[in-house]
Design a protein around this nucleic acid. Structure first.
Lengths: 190, 190
DNA sequence: ACCGCATGTCATCATGTGAAGACATCGCAT
DNA sequence: ATGCGATGTCTTCACATGATGACATGCGGT
C-alpha cells in the first residue's frame, strides 16, 4: 500500500511539505518575508528547516508557493460586494492578511516574487473590481480599482500592525462598515 | 572662529551628521528599515558607516533621528483639507513618502521605533483629522481618523512600490482627486 | 611650533542567515 | 529478510550585517 491510508506515518514527505507550507503562510503573514527565517518556519512546523530546501528549493520558492496556495482557495473577490468583503475580513481576522499584501507596500528585491504577488493580487482583487467599475461606466476603472485595493491593503495591514491602536482594537463589524463606505467612494463620483 | 563660516572643511562633524541623516531618510523611505544597511547609508552619504555609531549611537537611533527630522518641518496636516493634501502629495512626489509610513503597515520588532513612529504619525496626521471629525460631530472620530490615515498610507506606499502599475504611472492630480474622494468618505455617513 | 582632541579610516568580532552536504534511519519492493 | 531509495537529522560553510575599538590624521588653542 503506497498511499491513501495516510494514517500517522512518521515519515511522510507530503505531510512535511504541507506542514512547512502552512507554517510559512502564517509566519510570512505575521512578519513579512525578510523577517521570517527558515529556522522559525521549521520550528513552527515541527519539521527540520533543511527540508525547505529539499521540497521547495529555498526560502524564496517557498514564499511563491504560499502565494500560490492562497491563490488556489481564494476566489476572485469584488471588494464592493458586502458579502465578499465580510468573508475576506473574517478570514484575515483568523489567519491574518496573506503574505502578499506586504509586498505591495514594501517592494521586494526579487523580481520573481514581485511579479507573482502582483499577478496574484490583481487577479484576485483588482480585476474583479475593475470589471465592476467598467460595468458601471466609470472613468479610469483600472486606476480606481488599484487605488481601492491599495487603500484596502493599508487598512488591513495597519490593523494587524501596531501603529493604529483603535483600529486594531475595533470591532470587526464596525471596521467592515467603515471600510465599505471608504471603498464605495471609488465608485461614487463620475 | 569656531562656526558659522562652514565653508568646505574637510573634517566637519556637523556636515557628516547631516549627510548621513539625509542619506538615511532617502534609503529608509525607499527600502524600509530592515532592508537598509549602514554600509549603504555610508556609501550614499560619502561618509564612513562607522560614524553612524559615533554620531547617532547605532542604526536604530539614526532611524529615530530621521523620523524626528521629518517631524520637525512638517506641520500637522488635515488630510481632508485639499491644500494640505496637495502639499503632502507634492512632497512625496519629490522625496518619496517618509520612512515612517512603512512601519505602520509592517511592524518593527524594536518597540522604541514602533512607538516613535506611532507618535509621529498620530500627531501629524491622525490627530488633526480626528479633531476635524469631532467638530463635525461624527461618531467614532478616532477610529475614522486612523482608518483614513491607514488607507492613505496604503495608497501612498503602493504608488511608490511596484505592485500597482497604473496607480504608479497616473497623473498626480488625478490621484489626488480620487484620494480626496476616498478620504472624504470617512466623513460621509453619520 | 607643538600638543591635545576631535574627526575620520580601517580591521575585526559576534551574530544570524540561507544553503548545501554528510550521515542516519525508515519503508517498500523484491 | 534484505537491499535500495526515500525521508529526516545534524553539521558546517559562506556571506552579510551591526557594532566596536585601534589607529591615523588634521584642526585649533597655546
Amino acid at each position: 500500500m503506497s498511499e491513501a491510508s495516510a494514517g500517522e506515518r512518521r515519515r511522510d514527505a507530503a505531510r512535511s511539505r504541507e506542514l512547512l507550507l502552512r507554517a510559512a503562510i502564517e509566519l510570512f503573514a505575521e512578519r513579512g518575508f525578510d523577517r521570517t527565517t527558515i529556522r522559525e518556519i521549521g520550528e513552527r512546523a515541527g519539521v527540520d528547516p533543511a527540508l525547505i530546501a529539499r521540497y521547495y528549493g529555498g526560502k524564496t520558492q517557498l514564499y511563491l508557493a504560499t502565494v500560490q496556495a492562497e491563490h488556489g482557495d481564494a476566489t476572485p473577490a469584488d471588494l464592493l460586494d458586502e458579502e465578499r468583503l465580510a468573508g475576506l475580513l473574517d478570514r484575515f481576522e483568523q489567519r491574518g492578511p496573506g503574505p502578499a499584501f506586504q509586498t505591495v507596500v514594501l517592494p521586494s528585491d526579487d523580481s520573481a516574487v514581485q511579479d507573482a504577488v502582483r499577478a496574484h493580487l490583481h487577479r484576485r482583487l483588482v480585476d474583479p473590481l475593475r470589471e465592476r467599475l467598467e460595468r458601471e461606466g466609470l472613468d479610469r476603472p483600472q486606476l480606481r480599482a488599484e487605488l481601492a485595493v491599495a487603500a484596502f491593503t493599508g487598512v488591513v495591514l495597519a490593523r494587524s500592525g501596531g501603529g493604529m491602536p483603535e483600529l486594531a482594537a475595533a470591532d470587526p463589524a464596525e471596521v467592515r462598515a467603515l471600510l465599505h463606505d471608504l471603498l464605495a467612494a471609488t465608485a461614487g463620483t463620475a
